[in-house]
Design a protein around this nucleic acid. Structure first.
Lengths: 206, 206
DNA sequence: AGCGATATTTTGACACTGTCAAGATTGATT
DNA sequence: AATCAATCTTGACAGTGTCAAAATATCGCT
């Protein structure tokens, strides 16, 4: 039997696929101690390679972080698409409310990753990967698309521009996530009530 | 004439009031290059003292940052109080709208400081000073107070709980600041329209 | 099977960071 | 003038990201 890389059990040569291992371990470390607790050296150590080994799979620490953020975007994108597929005309409000709820919960469960997705670490300090930028834009497009739908169905309170509405609604969502994640002015226990309040602000009062 | 510290021209001994100089220079450095660009060593260097001199005035880098953040809170607190004093019963909507606008502008003009006020640097990595915590809480109380007022005057769309309304409105404000500051999904040129959209979501449609 | 090319990893090094401990300097107070 | 406390400096340590050069392992080809 030829011993290709595809056999996962094969403990072959240098390490196997360091790339995936690094990504996984880094995600774990971040989720536990935040982005700041992740150092390239500790990561390498924990995976069992030398300090500079990771640099052959990720050009930068920045690129590594971008990769992790990207996975976050994939997750929320999937969430949104799932929410939109189960539309039953009359319960659109419920679907939307449910989505907001789940979204914020998700952002909280993976708070550190969420911070990475929208935080300054990447978007101001670092330089977002082309790939990350695309995925981020794509996600907002999906969101905008939904808002347009809700607007057409006369469910959401849209002003002059649907784009502006989408931006503001998104800001509300995002603001809630941040406040809850950082524990500023709110606690997790307020989640449900706050979501209800937020949604009733965004949607038309039936 | 006795040579007290108050003469600013006097190039007297140890430095004069390092505390203030450090605070000022640190604020400047942050506003230019972000929190990350501020290192205690560079700061000391730029002020003209040795590396560890600042540590006799600020226990930590963290404490320094807290002091800067605190000044930010003082500023927004003042802004809010000013806005509330000029209430003419019928133009409350205008006052509120104006405030939101000014607030976001302010947050943008001092974006790095704003990030410090609400960012993870202090609130998750570091440990907020007692003093900072108080001022932060105080500011939210002022905000809540205003929302309660608007709610009583039947201007704002309040649900079951005014507290929740205040939290959500604040989240919207905060979310907008962050998106604009970080340039995510929006640009500064959208400001006015977005504020209008946001306010019309928060207030009752007259 | 063997050999060279290529992919992968390591060691050494550098400049930078925050901050502690110990010593030196200065101003005020008695 | 002498003492004391405030203030500042020097030296040191562990930790960081990342580059350059060397070492090693695997693959493709003859």
């Amino acid at each position: 039997m030829k011993q290709t890389d595809s056999t996962p059990t094969s403990r072959h040569y240098h390490h196997g696929d360091l790339y995936q291992s690094l990504l996984l371990m880094a995600t774990e470390m971040i989720s536990e101690g935040g982005t700041e607790s992740l150092s390239m050296r500790k990561l390498a150590d924990r995976v069992g390679v030398s300090r500079t080994a990771p640099y052959h799979h990720f050009k930068d620490k920045n690129v590594l972080l971008c990769a992790i953020a990207e996975q976050g975007f994939e997750r929320v994108e999937k969430l949104l698409l799932e929410a939109r597929t189960e539309e039953e005309p009359e319960s659109l409000r419920r679907v939307f409310t449910q989505y907001v709820h789940t979204y914020i919960e998700l952002a909280h469960r993976h708070r550190e990753q969420y911070d990475l997705m929208f935080g300054r670490e990447i978007w101001r300090n670092g330089t977002p990967t082309e790939s990350l930028q695309n995925r981020s834009r794509q996600h907002f497009k999906s969101w905008l698309n939904w808002i347009e739908d809700l607007s057409n169905q006369n469910i959401i309170l849209s002003g002059d521009s649907t784009l502006r509405t989408a931006q503001v609604c998104w800001a509300t969502l995002h603001g809630l996530c941040r406040l809850l994640n950082d524990g500023i002015y709110t606690e997790q226990s307020h989640l449900k009530e706050m979501v209800d309040t937020a949604v009733s602000m965004m949607l038309k009062h039936s």
